[in-house]
């Protein structure tokens, strides 16, 4: 390797390692607080590594975790069903849009992408969903609104546009129906794109608090993020869910600081675990090709 290229290499790694640290340290700090003893926190503040290792926060959060489990269940259900349906729906429309010979291609693109720039606003949407569609306090209200996100459709369309048209053409000549081409040829070929969009969609569902903030009043439908939000200001969302300390922890102060962080870890963890499954498709799937409609 010529010397000329080596110095920038060092510089690049230095910058990247610093940025990587900044990505990891916040996670570590939250993790560390969740494993610290409350008394120590109140006395010495947070630290990057627990000074006094302590599991009280988890014992507290996981004692009688009925509500926590319920929230997990809702989040998982919404993420899985939502992602599946969304990818299917978006792949469908993206494929149609990617076909240069589709008659209404331009009109349909405009129809989809116009919504990226213009919307009816919070209030009309709320009125529609709660009074006309009657979706309030149903699990569907957490799923349906994100089934067709223009940005993801755009990503998928760009990806599908790169599938050589002659493959489709030859299938057509063989007499395959469009539906068959879509399911048997396009979907397998578009796997990296689909995987990427699936990951993003899943993230969006998992991390969503907005829909539950507006449309969920029933405790059995509260997802994790919303629960976490309510705890931010008021730890009693945790305390009243348990109302008391686990036996054996009688004389310990309520671990309000560390318990909050323990909850954050429980909510963030699953998505980090999911990522490696999608990673190999990632860069290829993120191609934003020609956006032109």
């Amino acid at each position: 390797m010529p010397l000329k290229r080596r110095i920038p290499q060092l510089l690049i790694h230095l910058v990247f390692i610093l940025f990587s640290l900044s990505c990891i340290i916040p996670l570590i700090s939250v993790l560390s607080v969740s494993f610290s003893s409350e008394v120590d926190i109140l006395k010495n503040g947070y630290s990057l590594f627990p000074r006094v290792f302590d599991l009280t926060a988890y014992a507290y959060v996981l004692y009688r975790p009925i509500q926590l489990l319920g929230a997990f269940k809702i989040s998982i259900l919404v993420s899985v069903i939502g992602t599946f349906l969304a990818v299917l729906a978006m792949a469908g429309i993206a494929y149609t849009l990617s076909r240069p010979d589709y008659k209404y291609k331009n009109k349909l693109s405009f129809y989809v992408f116009f919504t990226m720039l213009f919307n009816g606003g919070l209030v009309p949407t709320y009125i529609l969903i709660s009074n006309y569609l009657h979706l309030k306090n149903t699990i569907w209200v957490l799923i349906l609104p994100y089934l067709a996100v223009p940005w993801f459709i755009l990503l998928l369309r760009s990806f599908m546009q790169k599938i050589p048209f002659h493959i489709i053409e030859s299938c057509m000549i063989d007499g395959a129906s469009e539906l068959r081409i879509f399911f048997q040829i396009i979907l397998p070929l578009a796997k990296p794109g689909l995987a990427t969009v699936a990951l993003f969609t899943m993230l969006q569902y998992w991390n969503d608090w907005w829909l539950s903030l507006l449309y969920i009043e029933e405790e059995r439908l509260v997802p994790l993020q919303y629960m976490l939000y309510r705890m931010m200001n008021n730890i009693s969302f945790l305390t009243s869910s348990t109302n008391m300390m686990p036996p054996g922890l009688k004389n310990v102060e309520l671990p309000s600081e560390s318990a909050r962080m323990a909850m954050a870890i429980l909510a963030a963890g699953p998505m980090l675990a999911v990522f490696p499954f999608f990673q190999k498709y990632f860069v290829r799937g993120l191609t934003v090709g020609a956006v032109k409609g």
Partner: peptide
């Protein structure tokens, strides 16, 4: 019974009332 936490009540009711539910 729509039993809401104190912290959520005001905001929820504004939207509920606004929407004419």
């Amino acid at each position: 019974f729509k039993a809401l936490p104190f912290g959520d009540y005001d905001q929820k009711m504004q939207v509920v009332i606004a929407s004419g539910e």
